[in-house]
Design a protein around this nucleic acid. Structure first.
Lengths: 226, 226
DNA sequence: ACAAAAGTGTTCGGGTTACACCCATGG
DNA sequence: CCATGGGTGTAACCCGAACACTTTTGT
């Protein structure tokens, strides 16, 4: 067998919807290279764990977060992407409900924080490319799979869902048409709870019914938001 | 740095449209493990080449093919996917116009052949999973990007394009609506050449105008076939 | 003349889009 | 009572789906 000494890493782009805007989870590196730079959580894969296990472990260790949604994003393998050795990184795309997790720095990181995607710092390695890729994936996926609900609290306001879509898709959405469309899918439950957001008429809480979604999906229903 | 001894490979699923049906390019392995099994072309990444360079090199070496279209597909990293050592494989999705290439066995392979996707042999490793993934990608991609033209000869009949879509999407397509739709995109040139396919009225040849496509794309046009 | 494939228009219905007013609460 | 956000219906338009007959060639 050919001599080959390439290291295999995993990195995760974790999105969360906080304070009415889209955030990304970053860690501050406390080792070289790029010591004190912000970076995506991740690290080397151990010999006896799968790639998914590796990302979940690193996420837990470095940030104390467990993803509510996780899928593979893309693999980056440019020869010089890591200044030390050849390292290829298999990246993952993750969504979390920020309220559910207390972030906490630990292994290999001396700080962890949510950054609004509008106010990102410089990132280590080629992590800005990875992030770009992840933003595209999020934008696309939002239109044909109900992943928006993995970014919101279990109970949410319709206006939050709408804001989330407008933020991520970067366009205006007609409130009436949007509501009509989503409700027509029959995957939401309207709860008997109202919430007053300070001023204005109190709004109803809704909840995503995953079972119902899977049922409809089996029957050929296709989630699709323009 | 942690001790890690994982090998990195690339594998390619190469599709070609031959004899009115969809084919996949496979090689017969002449080394263990899985000696004499059919497998996807691929191999270990060299230290000083990018992932794309690696796939292209392996493809050329093992089959003498140069892909007309190439994109990354997915990375497979289950712990036991290779019985010898831990090997993760970054897989690629490729399209070729079969008429353009003379396939030829060489390194690590004692045979190379096109297989209609209906008549596939058993495959080595987890290559059937990779192939499944690739089929999904092809099916999806065909509906929102004009990749069908990378599977046909430069000059082709409308009926071939139609058959290709029906084959890959696995459904009937109305000839009139399909033609209307494709022509409305204004990305085909109708040539002044007719071809007689044995019996029946001779058909006109068409040609994909890539420049025109890119121009329309920049202006916000979206290719979309149901 | 018959079989085989190519070429071509119109109608109908459903879904998307555009659009404006009333309701409930807090200050 | 005024400001703020929540909640709702209808009409126009467009696009996709369904559908059948004529043309050109080879045998």
């Amino acid at each position: 067998m050919i001599r080959q000494n390439i290291k295999v890493a995993v990195d995760a782009v974790v999105f969360g919807y906080k304070d009415k805007s889209l955030n990304v989870l970053l860690i501050k590196r406390d080792i070289e290279p790029f010591k004190d730079s912000w970076a995506l959580p991740g690290g080397l894969v151990l010999e006896n764990e799968s790639l998914e296990e590796a990302v979940m472990r690193e996420l837990k260790e470095e940030t104390n977060v467990t993803a509510d949604y996780l899928e593979q994003l893309y693999s980056f393998g440019a020869v010089k992407r890591d200044p030390r050795n050849r390292v290829i990184s298999i990246t993952y795309f993750a969504l979390v409900k920020p309220e559910h997790h207390k972030i906490k720095a630990d292994t290999d990181a001396n700080d962890v924080a949510w950054f609004p995607i509008q106010e990102l710092p410089e990132l280590a390695f080629d992590h800005h490319m990875i992030l770009e890729q992840a933003k595209k994936r999020l934008k696309n996926k939002l239109t044909y799979e109900p992943i928006g609900f993995d970014l919101l609290d279990d109970k949410f306001l319709f206006s939050d869902l709408e804001k989330l879509y407008m933020t991520i898709l970067e366009k205006e959405i007609d409130r009436r048409n949007f509501r009509k469309k989503i409700l027509s899918f029959d995957i939401l439950e309207e709860l008997d709870e109202k919430v007053s957001e300070g001023r204005g008429r109190p709004a109803n809480l809704f909840q995503f019914n995953k079972k119902q979604y899977f049922k409809h999906q089996k029957e050929g229903f296709i989630f699709d938001i323009k």
